[in-house]
Nucleic acid binder design. Structure first.
Lengths: 117, 117
DNA sequence: TTGTTAATTAACTAACTCGCTAAATACGAC
DNA sequence: GTCGTATTTAGCGAGTTAGTTAATTAACAA
């Protein structure tokens, strides 16, 4: 919606570790230790990446005993998809198919944002 | 394609001034001064934003006399769109429509990238 | 040559990011 | 309480970013 949210979302996604974390969470919830396991990086570093993702609204966290399971929250990604779709005509040969696609996208509700993209 | 390019693209898009510049360029080529005009910011600042966008491959620049017209280059945006589409199912109710869409996207050539997203 | 406009580079500051290690907190088990 | 595991916070250092003003380069015009 607002500019700041796009800022935070894009900034969060600019780090390969954070994108990998999201990819992992796309397969289901995971704890911090589980998320950290694939990386040659300290646990505090991962914890920080998770905080960045949380602030951007890209993940949420539960509380089960001493574990804080993380789950993917895709709403900001939808904003990104809406934003980038405005540029689709610049790489997509078929104009009309894009029009169809955008129309489809808008059917559920008018939750697109055009101002100050 | 490679991870680094996604990094650079996302990082470039994390700034509202740069997104606004891209939005302006979506309407056609423009010189540095024209691009700077809407902003309460010095010309060197704009010049640097343009350099960031250029390094990310999001714009290219010509040379006409003392003007250096900028033009939008959308290829990196396509990468973004491809990346974010992997998460479409997390906000889109219709699974099957997404599958169709992705199939469409892949038809022209296999220029998608899945590794290390 | 001199002047004007367009754009970049240089040098600087303030603020932020990302990694680390060490210490602290939170919870469950004993 | 004490122990062990999970996670976060604190503090540090290196590197980057985004802005500034002043100086410089590039091209055209007279």
């Amino acid at each position: 919606m607002m500019d700041d949210r796009l800022d935070a979302t894009f900034a969060s996604l600019a780090d390969p570790t954070r994108r990998a974390i999201l990819a992992r969470l796309a397969q289901g919830e995971a704890t911090v230790n589980e998320l950290a396991e694939p990386f040659a990086m300290s646990l505090p570093a991962i914890s920080r990446h998770l905080k960045v993702l949380e602030r951007a609204g890209l993940i949420s966290r539960g509380r089960e005993a001493q574990w804080r399971p993380c789950r993917l929250e895709a709403a900001p990604l939808k904003d990104i998809a809406n934003w980038v779709d405005h540029y689709r005509r610049f790489w997509d040969a078929s104009f009309d198919r894009m029009a169809d696609y955008l129309k489809e996208l808008q059917t559920p509700k008018g939750d697109q944002d055009d101002r100050k993209n």
